[in-house]
Design a protein around this nucleic acid. Sequence first.
DNA 1: AGAGCAGGCGCTACAGCGTAGACTACTACA
DNA 2: TGTAGTAGTCTACGCTGTAGCGCCTGCTCT
Lengths: 250, 250
Amino acid sequence: MGEEDIASEDRTPFERQRRTVRRRAALTRNDVLATALTLVDADGVEAFSMRRLGKALGRDPMRLYRHASSKDALLDGVVELVMSKLAVPALHEVVDWEAGLRYTAHSFRSIAVEHPHVVPLLVTRPLATPLAMRPLGTLRPLENLLELLVGAGFDGRGALHAYRLYFGFLFGHILNELQEQVHNPEETTDLLRLGLHRLPALEFPRLRGLAGELATYDGLQELEEGLDIVLEGLRRKLADQKPNHEVRRG
Amino acid sequence: MGEEDIASEDRTPFERQRRTVRRRAALTRNDVLATALTLVDADGVEAFSMRRLGKALGRDPMRLYRHASSKDALLDGVVELVMSKLAVPALHEVVDWEAGLRYTAHSFRSIAVEHPHVVPLLVTRPLATPLAMRPLGTLRPLENLLELLVGAGFDGRGALHAYRLYFGFLFGHILNELQEQVHNPEETTDLLRLGLHRLPALEFPRLRGLAGELATYDGLQELEEGLDIVLEGLRRKLADQKPNHEVRRG
DNA sequence: AGAGCAGGCGCTACAGCGTAGACTACTACA
DNA sequence: TGTAGTAGTCTACGCTGTAGCGCCTGCTCT
């Protein structure tokens, strides 16, 4: 069996291994994660497999288990890699805690828009891992934001709640934005382009009526509008809380 | 009767089929989806497979493709089934549009808490499906919320933006809440219980300092606090927009 | 120089997956 | 009675994640 298999005849496992051992540099965890990221970016998480990643690296897929204990762990690593790009400024680098949050929000949005296929992971993996077990790189932004908020005058509880509201909003916004993809740009009317003509007109009058609005989604502007509301709310919370202590400035 | 279990030789496919045809009632799409939901609830999406679902229904797995064209489509059906439980009151059933949104928010939270393993699907599947291609049951809540908001005086654009902010917030909140699971309740100190002792104290002072707060997460209350802020923001938007037209009442 | 050994490395194998397609038996109508 | 269509089942294919194994390499010790 397998006489047709050329490689196993003129190149024994031994030879193949010697070659590769000579030639290849050692594989770092970062190589692995970076390549995994490009694969996910290209074809989505669904299409990602250990075997494909192995092939992309020119290595035996089993080699990957040296750098991550399982596929899930590897995907956690990808999440960590992506989240480590999130820029959270310190309070002194920025005019205002609000400016800091705005800056971070834009950074987050950029990352998500740049890696849309990673977003399901970003959103989903934490559900499978208790907070403190998450990769440290993932917790760094959280710590930095808490620092920023505490520096701004929030007490511990307030900072945590503010963080949650803020980040929850960010995630929600990203999920909204990423599903606003128009798929048939060659169609002319909004109704057709969005596929809304499929909806029974009597049951979905509002939705159909909003075809025009749906067609002109502007993610950045909606982010800004949302931030206005969220930050206004947080500002008021901060003001309500401050009177007890000394006040820095509004 | 022992042969019932064993014999595939003394019971031909023919005989087996005649029996089952006689005995079994036809399988409805709802049966399939409902059973799928229980499986997902029990073991999570990862552990869900067509073959397992087939086994749970006592049917050939291939039968399932009669009710859904693929596994993904079937999971979309599960999402639809779950989302169809979301209660969105009409404006006249409720004192206020704000009350309507609050009610819906609680309904959504209940559903998510009841089906935590479905949440990844809820959040993830829409990313793979353009809005208008989604199952109708999934769009119903959207339509109803738009109706509610328009009835409250929002114009089309405003209603859509309000909807997005509101639902984005809801999703974000749910994602927050579901990852606040304490895993080692037998441990005594919050630091240990949450696994936070693992974090380098110097690099994560804020996070460690908030162990107590993290340990006492109250999802319902945080939802309420978030709603306060979001609804306040929407109320202001509505007020800003109204002066152009006739005013109903603040 | 030679022996021994630890560990890196690739291969094979296994159990399970989604689903295309062929086959079989039954039903409804001519 | 014949025939077309359909519903139900089984098999098979090409994937998947990953456990286990045996080989080769290079280091250490004599």
